[in-house]
């Protein structure tokens, strides 16, 4: 079968009712038949992905067999909790709140991170300054891989931006990843206590491009939206009646004290553009054809294809489960 012509509408879900029916049937089967669990626990962030996963699962098994867990910490946006609580209420899902700041303090998450930040920007004081990190490509069309930069926001709102030396970069990332891993630990606590399965919330980009923390938000027993593009997740959100406020919210990492979009941290494109470029790359569309639709040159498209290829390769470690074929006797 030949490929359909590339267009901006290529990821539009044609038969939403059937798709949602297939997704919910599969969720129900995976929880009850495959995993043999009575229900499902989900970590709720107030973002689009966990909201859609919750809505789908509630439809699949009934909200009375679900538990939503909100797990804010001191750097979390206060909006996240309010939005998550509101949505859970709308779908009839019981929610509880577990503040993880104490657990993170115990791990030394903040002190390890802040020490590394201070080594790069000496005037950084976590009591008065905010911080975030993000990747930056060195010049359009460059074949150099991106490097992480640290942004410290001064009390007056001005910013200090510095390239991160590798040790401080690794320390900040490793310390921050305590957040996702602590959340996953807590979700599994509730899942085991209730004999429920854990719904993982990564979408297709997060899985394929490695934008998740191994054994953190990359954990779970099933990934209902793991094969869906972000624009498709939004289409499902509209269909299922996820609140407009969540749909309109810019996806953020909600990990660092300074506000940061997922686009600036990782993706480098708005999600609708990223979706189309990734689809084109995965399905082998000619860069010239894609460029015409996207208003970009064939060279730019080609460069992005190479960038995607590199991302897939460098993040393979994250998707690889523990290797267990040490069969020598």
């Amino acid at each position: 079968m030949s490929k359909p012509e590339f267009s901006r509408d290529i990821l539009k879900i044609q038969d939403m009712e059937t798709l949602v029916d297939q997704l919910t049937t599969r969720i129900r089967e995976d929880i009850t038949i495959r995993h043999k669990r009575y229900g499902a626990v989900i970590g709720l962030s107030g973002g689009i992905d966990s909201s859609v996963c919750m809505a789908l699962t509630a439809k699949a098994i009934g909200p009375d067999k679900m538990l939503g867990v909100m797990m804010p910490e001191k750097d979390s946006s206060p909006d996240s909790e309010e939005l998550a609580r509101e949505l859970a209420g709308k779908f009839g899902v019981k929610v509880i709140k577990e503040v993880i700041t104490g657990a993170l303090d115990g791990f030394g998450c903040y002190t390890r991170r802040d020490q590394a930040v201070k080594e790069v920007v000496q005037e950084y004081d976590p009591a008065t300054h905010k911080m975030k990190i993000g990747i930056k490509h060195e010049g359009k069309g460059s074949k150099l891989p991106p490097l992480f930069h640290l942004t410290v926001v001064n009390p007056d709102g001005s910013e200090i931006v510095k390239r991160l030396p590798s040790l401080q970069m690794r320390t900040i990332i490793a310390a921050s990843n305590f957040k996702q891993r602590s959340r996953m630990s807590l979700v599994y606590y509730h899942a085991e206590q209730l004999h429920y399965a854990v719904i993982g919330t990564p979408n297709k980009h997060e899985v394929d491009q490695g934008f998740f923390v191994k054994f953190g938000d990359g954990g779970g027993d099933l990934f209902p939206i793991g094969r869906l593009y972000k624009t498709q997740v939004y289409q499902i959100a509209e269909y299922l009646g996820v609140s407009q406020e969540i749909i309109d919210r810019t996806p953020t990492t909600d990990t660092y004290s300074a506000e940061q979009t997922q686009e600036e941290f990782f993706y480098e494109f708005p999600h609708d553009v990223m979706d189309l470029l990734w689809y084109a790359y995965e399905n082998g569309y000619d860069p010239a054809e894609v460029g015409q639709v996207m208003g970009m040159t064939a060279d730019e498209i080609e460069r992005n294809y190479r960038n995607f290829e590199r991302r897939s390769e460098t993040t393979e470690y994250l998707r690889t489960p523990p290797i267990n074929d040490y069969i020598f006797i």
Partner: peptide, 8 residues
């Protein structure tokens, strides 16, 4: 070298 390799 990838991104980490470049930083190192």
């Amino acid at each position: 070298f990838d991104s980490m390799g470049f930083a190192l």
